[in-house]
Amino acid sequence: MPERKVTVASRVGLHARPAAIFAEAAAEQPVEVTIAMDGAPEDEAMDASSILSLMSLGASHGDVVVLRADGAGADQALDALVKVLETDHDAE
């Protein structure tokens, strides 16, 4: 299954506003995308379009997370979401 490892760029981590932006972007994708902390078992991965899952993940600035998706358009979806995570939304 295609996956990407990304470092969380947001200074406050995957909290509030950055989490909302990311969840909305994930919901717009044609495929289901999951998110997990790097090194966590794959079956613990959570729905990336859920703001509550993202918040419970508790990823801080500099943490590495793994995004996974399957099916048609999975690669494009992952690339789009990597961009969102690599942006520091608080710096905008």
Partner: peptide, 18 residues
């Protein structure tokens, strides 16, 4: 606006509903 937007997302959160 930012706080309400985030709570709006929570209201229909897929994990919560599931």
């Amino acid at each position: 606006k930012a706080v309400l937007e985030a709570t709006a997302l929570m209201a229909a959160d897929p994990m919560l509903i599931k």
